[in-house]
Amino acid sequence: MSNAFVDFDRVYLAYDEEGGYAVEDISLSVREKEFIAIVGPSGCGKSTFMKLASGLRPPSKGTVLAEGREIAGPLKIVGMAFQNATLLPWRTTLDNVLLPLEIVQPFRANFKRDLEMYKERARGLLKTVGLDGYEDKFPWQLSGGMQQRASICRALVHEPKLLLLDEPFGALDAFTREELWCVLRDLWAQKQFTVVLVTHDLREATFLADTVYVMSKRPGRILVRKEVDLPRPRDLEVTYTDQFTSIVHELREHIGRIRKI
């Protein structure tokens, strides 16, 4: 309990009175700097889980703790990225990445004064994801993979302790996706934040995460917790090993069982 960074204790959430629960009886805890992945069939309440973790939605029942305190309202320590890059088309890539700094305190108060410093920081981030030279391009001039990289930079620019990713690579082709796995892996290794990754790609979950949770169909429950004990740092090569395949296989069987019910 003491080393839990985000802690779900028997959490239920219903969006409206009649609709029933979107997620049910979720209990899990995430250590600081842990990388967890949540997998499950579509419509299983994965995105609901994100809303709970970010504080956008209070639970109907149960408690969600972040850093030992109950979440009341949006958490400023989170960064989020979604399947759609949701970049603002009237802003350049650099200005898009700077957006959170215009909103989150204490950056917001010093925004004008420290603008140059912030720009440097944003440029540095863009460079680490391989987007140097694209700072002044508009999002619609970038490819889907590049937009997603920029979106991840935007999620990280205010140095959040918790990164929430909702199928961030879902819309990309297989090669770009694997490239971005490595980008995320390196960012995580370098910056040391906690990650909650929601995905339906089991290989993605296995490659990136320390712990994988399998969720059931709606109402979403957590069915299985699987620790991925592959050694780090992991290289893409690891995805071709037997150990990797057997983990993916095991997860796939759980999902298959859910879909049959």
């Binding site: 970010s54 956008l56 949006p74 979604f82 603002l88 909103i103």
Partner: peptide
């Protein structure tokens, strides 16, 4: 407005 974009900003405390 795209709801996801609003989520991104609201989660930051906007």
């Amino acid at each position: 407005l795209e709801p996801e974009l609003e989520d991104v900003l609201r989660a930051l405390g906007a």
